[in-house]
Computed example of a mutant assay.
Amino acid sequence: MSVVVIAVGIWNIRKYGKLKFDEKKGELGLQKKIRDAHTTVPIFVHSIKNQILAERVIQKRLDTELQKDVPDKESLKNMLGQLHTMNQNMLERMEELYRSVKTGYIHLVPVSPEEILKTADSRFHQKYPEGMVKYQCEKGYLVLADKKYLGEAVSNLLTNAYEAGIPGQAVSVWCTVKAEKLYLLIHIKDNGRGMDKEECKKIFEPFYTSKNTNYNWGMGLAYVMQTVKEHLGMIRVESMPGKGTDFYIYIPIYKGHKAKESG
């Protein structure tokens, strides 16, 4: 039986990825093949869409400030700086995605969950500079990941959690990272409006959205699920109307310094 398992594992690596050892860094990386255009095109479109929607938020704030009798010059300067940064990030992201689409691979290397959260938090605050997320991260673990892709997927969940807030109620978003057996669990929780069972069944479908379609194009959770799968992981959701929502992402733990410490 073990021979069969090994053979299947080798076949999967040959079919879906390439192993590469970086002698300088002493790291084993996995270039995982993105399956087809049905994956790459939505990833490309959704990523650019997120940047555009983030810029719309800043533009609305600019319009509001400019309509005042005496606009706050410092505030205008800060918002223009944010737009400049967003435009630069968009150009860089387009180049990254183009390279990934062209090669058909994402590059998975050992990274810490802190790096992934840093990427996610940065993208979240591009859209909601004043948004708050409470983080708790268990240290000492590594996962094989492309931090830009996985960070963006986590950012999508943070954004959804923040936008799910109930009017008139303080919004709370928590992101907890901890080890669970062979997996690293990224748990994102909110105190928002929640969803019923029927909506939970639909949320991972491409282009499904319960939000204003002028500001949300419905690729968020389909993109998140696909990205998690490309990282050899799993995702599940628990939610109840009026009780908030919990998303659980499981990514296989890479044998990093925790294993070394125990050895």
Rank of each mutant, 00 (worst) to 15 (best):
Q88L: 06
K118G: 11
R93N: 13
R123K: 09
P129V: 15
G140V: 07
K139W: 05
V111R: 04
R99T: 02
R123W: 05
T119D: 04
S122C: 08
R99Y: 13
M94T: 08
I116V: 14
E96Q: 06
V133C: 05
G131K: 02
A145H: 00
Y128I: 10
P110V: 05
L144H: 01
V111Y: 00
R93P: 03
S112L: 04
R123P: 00
V101W: 12
M94N: 09
V109Y: 00
Y128A: 07
A145P: 04
H107L: 14
N87V: 08
E96K: 13
M90V: 01
P129Y: 13
Q82A: 15
Y135G: 05
K134T: 06
G131Q: 12
L91M: 15
H107Q: 13
E115P: 01
K139I: 08
P129D: 06
N78G: 11
E130Q: 13
E92T: 05
K118V: 07
L97W: 00
L108P: 02
E96L: 12
L91D: 09
D146Q: 03
K118A: 13
M132Y: 09
G140Y: 02
H84D: 13
Y98K: 14
V143T: 00
N87S: 11
L91A: 14
G104H: 03
L83T: 04
F124K: 09
V101Y: 08
A145S: 12
V143R: 01
C137S: 12
P110A: 02
D121T: 08
M79P: 02
Y128N: 01
P113T: 04
H125N: 12
P110Y: 03
K127Y: 02
M132T: 15
L80G: 10
Q88I: 08
V109K: 05
Y105T: 01
E114Q: 09
